[in-house]
Simulated assay, not measured.
Amino acid sequence: MKALITGVTGFVGQHLASYLKIRGYQVWGTTRNNSGEVNNIDGVNQVHVDFDNITSIVDMLNFIQPDHIYHLAGQSSVLESWSDKVGTFNSNISLTMNLLEAIVQCEIKEKVSVLTVGSSEEYGGFDTGNNPVSENTPLKPISPYGISKATVSMLVRHYHTVYNLKIIHTRPFNHIGPGQRLGFVVSDFSNQIAQIEKGKKRKVISVGNLSAQRDFTDVRDIVKAYYFLLNEKVDSAWGESVNVCSGKATSIQSILETLLSLADCSIEVTIDSNKMRPVDIPVFMGDNTKLIDLTGWKPIISLEQTLSDVLKFYRDKS
């Protein structure tokens, strides 16, 4: 079996590639490197493709002949989407549409299964009394990023309905794990602790709102959910969206306390008003019933283990 991962060098892409290799897949990934050659890096065949050129994508798909496509590439930052709306819409909407158009035109249209990755940001300003959030919750995205991902979910439904593509859209909630870059709460806390332990920073952590509760899942469990969705009999769900989440809410305060308990020194916590959001939903958690019913998937990595692994990752980097 062959799997193609767009965005294979990203945080989630690297974990997905590792998991698929363990499952015996021949893994391919797209790259922006314009060498014109196929490079095998850590067991992944990386090939250049111009996602602005549908013909280039068709040629790539006909060459690789993947059984599964995991479309992870795109602009993944909510914050950056505010400063670069056009770039966000281009990366997340236009290039996704080019990929889907290419699949319609290529030799593998009838056999390939496709998974696109959206976000819980698609739900946006939902009614906070409706926790946990199910796939039936009306979409009310409030960020350019959320709007772009909600549009992708509509494209998925369109390409399944009109062209009969075997395609499914996922809405992952907060996913965390080793390798995640800075700019996310667990990574930022872990990096500060690691810097303090190395004596590179004062024994003070600066934080924002700690009372907010979010739905956290280890990225290594997330990629298993993606795998299950393309390997189980989910014919009834083609063209639909599926939440990928733990179904539990954990406070940022609890996250911080666990990480501090793992630190090898005493650390003071200070509140930085600049890190407080004007609007912050108190509790945001997902309903994973649909995913479990479709695949039997359940998260197995504990939050404590995940936090320990992330802290180790940043300790090794310091």
Rank of each mutant, 00 (worst) to 15 (best):
K298L: 10
K201R: 15
S83F: 09
S81N: 05
N34Y: 00
V162M: 08
S206W: 14
F51M: 15
T270V: 15
F184R: 13
S143Q: 08
F173P: 04
E240F: 00
S153R: 01
F184K: 13
I147M: 15
S18N: 10
G199S: 14
L262E: 14
N62W: 06
S211T: 12
A249N: 12
K290P: 02
R277I: 03
T161F: 01
M97V: 13
I22K: 12
K275Y: 05
Q75G: 06
L72C: 07
G177A: 03
Q26S: 14
H175G: 01
K111V: 05
S190K: 07
V58W: 00
P144V: 10
N231I: 13
K2Y: 08
H68Q: 11
W82F: 15
M154A: 14
L262I: 04
G208P: 06
P66I: 06
K166G: 09
G177D: 03
G239I: 12
I252D: 02
L303C: 09
K290G: 04
I142S: 12
N39Y: 11
S76R: 08
K248M: 11
R220C: 13
G125R: 06
I108Q: 01
G177C: 09
M285C: 13
E80Y: 02
I193T: 07
K166R: 15
L256H: 06
V114N: 01
L262K: 14
F313A: 11
V310Y: 10
I167K: 09
E257T: 07
M154I: 05
W297V: 00
A73N: 04
L303N: 05
S273A: 01
C106E: 07
V207C: 07
D280Y: 11
E257Y: 09
I300Y: 03
T306W: 03
V133Q: 02
E304Y: 12
V104H: 13
Q14A: 03
D52R: 05
I267G: 03
A212R: 10
T250R: 04
E232N: 14
N288G: 00
S35L: 12
P178I: 02
L155V: 09
S134L: 09
L16C: 01
V242E: 11
D59W: 03
S318I: 08
V133F: 06
K201Q: 15
A237V: 13
R32C: 10
D188L: 07
S251F: 01
V117R: 00
L99I: 09
V269I: 15
N45Y: 15
V242W: 06
E135M: 05
M1Y: 00
K203I: 04
V112E: 03
Y314I: 01
V162C: 09
L139F: 05
V86H: 05
S76E: 10
K233V: 13
V86I: 13
S83G: 00
K317W: 02
R202D: 15
S211Y: 08
E121M: 07
V86W: 04
S76Q: 09
E80P: 00
T270N: 09
D67A: 13
L61T: 01
L16E: 03
L99P: 03
T170D: 06
T258G: 10
S143R: 01
H15W: 05
S211W: 00
W82T: 07
N39K: 15
G87V: 05
Q180L: 14
K203M: 10
N33K: 11
H71F: 09
A212F: 06
D218I: 07
I193R: 08
Y19V: 00
L260V: 08
N98K: 11
